[in-house]
Design a protein around this nucleic acid. Structure first.
Lengths: 171, 171
DNA sequence: ACATAAGTGTAGCCACGGCTTCATTTCGGC
DNA sequence: GCCGAAATGAAGCCGTGGCTACACTTATGT
């Protein structure tokens, strides 16, 4: 490393940092990160909603303990998450009773589940081992926009079609 | 909705919930979420490290204000992030001076940048518009495991090769 | 019917990652 | 050389999402 890299006087080529033009060039950058942050914030709600949907499908209701167990958290954490779901109008519950999803919550859970499947399928389609695909999709899915999701679906549909059906060239 | 969906007495088909077999079937579930959480925790460090690397490449140093501006956060937030980077041994800095990356930090930034490019390339390859790919990759990349990354690279290499070159397993 | 176990709720702690506000330092012009 | 502006640092607030510890309710078994 340089002798004194921390001395600004010799570091920056220009103090004004090319503010003309470079500013709007990097104007989209914060937006990207803000979108990523927003997606991350929605992640937990989406995961819990989907999980509750799964449990209801399996057992007819979702219990805090089961949610906590499957999410790998303690039960107070699950309780807090459920409280947030309630606040957002995604779930309903009564003290010491099971947790259920509102229509909105169910719709969300359905969308999340479908998206998850699509992401896993795409990963597998491009050569990711099934197990790894499941793992990675869990985190990735929350950042997949509608546009990207549709692109995935199109791609999967395309490669799903028999190769000889519509290939322009004989190959 | 049912008359009284919150009444457990009529809800669960069986209280014991098929603990035989189902337990180990869902044993991997918490792990999935834990991995996703861990990835999310590393997200900020990775993003800041890459950003600092970019700024150093551009200006010879990274300043808190610039980092904050590009990340779309206020400067105290950037300062805190830098503090964490320092704690993790990824960056060095002196009060009122620029921020620089350690060798480890630089290595991390390089890996992150390469991974980002690969993810964007793959998204584009399967039909995602370039701009959307940039957006979505920002969040997705942090959840791409080594295995998946290599699968992406293989896939890109494969489709990069001229379609007629090895179509019939000639070479 | 009651005791105990299991499930649930509540309170309070911590770290993180945003934020605002204010103090301090450095930089730059006069 | 000094003074103001810009940059940085430090303190403190808030919401989130983990956790532990403890209280309470429900369920279960004898």
């Amino acid at each position: 490393m340089p002798a004194d890299p921390l001395d600004r006087s010799a570091a920056a080529p220009g103090p004004e940092r090319a503010e003309t033009g470079a500013e709007q060039e990097t104007a989209c950058q914060p937006d990207r990160f803000n979108r990523a942050r927003a997606a991350q914030a929605a992640t937990i709600l989406e995961d819990y909603a989907e999980m509750i949907g799964d449990l209801i499908a399996e057992f007819g209701e979702a219990r805090v303990t089961d949610i906590a167990h499957r999410m790998g958290v303690t039960h107070p954490t699950a309780t807090k998450a459920v409280a947030r779901l309630r606040r957002e109008g995604l779930a309903i519950s009564r003290p010491y009773r099971g947790i259920f999803l509102t229509d909105e919550g169910e719709a969300l859970a359905g969308r999340v589940r479908a998206r998850h499947r699509t992401v896993v399928d795409l990963l597998v389609a491009v050569g990711v081992p099934a197990e790894t695909a499941e793992m990675d999709a869990e985190g990735m899915e929350h950042h997949v926009s509608r546009t990207t999701l549709r692109a995935f679906e199109d791609y999967l549909r395309q490669i799903d079609a028999p190769p000889g059906t519509e290939s322009s060239s004989q190959d």
